[in-house]
């Protein structure tokens, strides 16, 4: 019963967050100084009077309450707004790209985690952590994603999955290593190691159980890392995913598309945060 009430509370909080995110991002866009700018303002053939009229018309049709109502309505109808650039429902633009982005994210997360876990397991069992393990992670974190993707393209090796996996592995390695080091120092694990219990059994039975909840929370953070790298990677490697759509929308001031993609990403992060937080909630319940 307690677990159910916690779950319901968590769902309510997620819903409130999503609503807040929707209102917040609509507000941010609406209050941005150039939201009402129109490309026609740059056209020398229009007189100042016409430009002023254009600005007034835009201000009238984009009042904040009306904008929020329209945004909520478009999400309730499932079309997520109409693209300014293409004149079609945003849903039609996003849907075919979701599978591409989803596949890229999944493969990157799996490879990144495999790399980070392997490195962290080896590093955490050594007496000295050593610069050999920390240096590559630090170096990788100091390279902006766009630069890493460009350098991979120039070298002709490594693709979008490789770049994103490296970034995820570099970020997660430090957390995983610290987590595992702390787990190994537990008195019962020290005793078990001293008694010569095999490493595989120790990992499966004791370590995994001790750090399970933290791993779930870290998985949520990995998704945020992957999403932050999505746009440069998809743009530079020419992957027709949601990140490339967002970049194209940003370049063409197609704010309904950009707003929809941002909300979608926020939904993914909130959902993953909720799932990541569940194991510890269940343990406490």
């Amino acid at each position: 019963m307690k677990a159910l009430s916690r779950l319901l509370r968590s769902l309510a909080r997620t819903l409130a967050l999503v609503l807040l995110v929707m209102i917040g991002s609509t507000l941010l866009v609406r209050l941005a100084p150039g939201y009402l700018s129109d490309a026609r303002e740059m056209d020398a053939r229009y007189s100042n009077t016409v430009r002023e009229e254009l600005a007034q018309e835009a201000a009238r049709s984009h009042s904040l309450p009306r904008m929020l109502a329209r945004e909520a309505n478009s999400w309730l109808h499932g079309d997520a707004g109409i693209s300014r650039q293409f004149g079609v429902p945003v849903r039609e633009l996003i849907r075919p790209r979701l599978a591409v982005t989803g596949g890229l994210l999944l493969r990157s997360l799996l490879l990144g985690w495999a790399l980070a876990l392997t490195a962290a397991l080896v590093a955490s069992t050594r007496r000295k952590s050593g610069i050999v393990w920390q240096a590559p992670a630090t170096l990788l974190l100091a390279i902006p994603t766009a630069a890493m993707a460009t350098l991979c393209l120039l070298a002709g090796s490594g693709g979008p999955v490789f770049v994103m996996a490296l970034l995820i592995a570099a970020r997660d390695f430090k957390f995983l290593c610290r987590m595992l080091r702390q787990a190994w120092l537990e008195p019962h694990l020290l005793q078990a190691r001293a008694q010569g219990i095999r490493m595989r059994r120790l990992l499966a039975v004791h370590v995994a159980a001790a750090i399970g909840a933290q791993l779930a929370a870290l998985a949520g953070l990995s998704l945020v890392t992957a999403l932050s790298a999505l746009v440069p990677v998809e743009v530079l490697f020419d992957v027709p995913g949601v990140g490339q759509l967002a970049w194209n929308a940003a370049m063409n001031r197609d704010l309904p598309v950009l707003l929809a993609v941002t909300l979608l990403m926020a939904l993914a992060v909130t959902a993953s945060g909720m799932l990541g937080g569940q194991p510890s909630e269940w343990e406490r319940a």
Binding site: L20, P33, S228, V231, A246, L258, M265, A266, V269
Partner: peptide
Amino acid sequence: MLVCDAFLALPWLFLLMMVRSALPLQA
């Protein structure tokens, strides 16, 4: 803290792109 969580749920780069693309054309 709810407002903080809402901001944390928004991926930085997307939000930056959104606000940056809504700047005046003649900035």
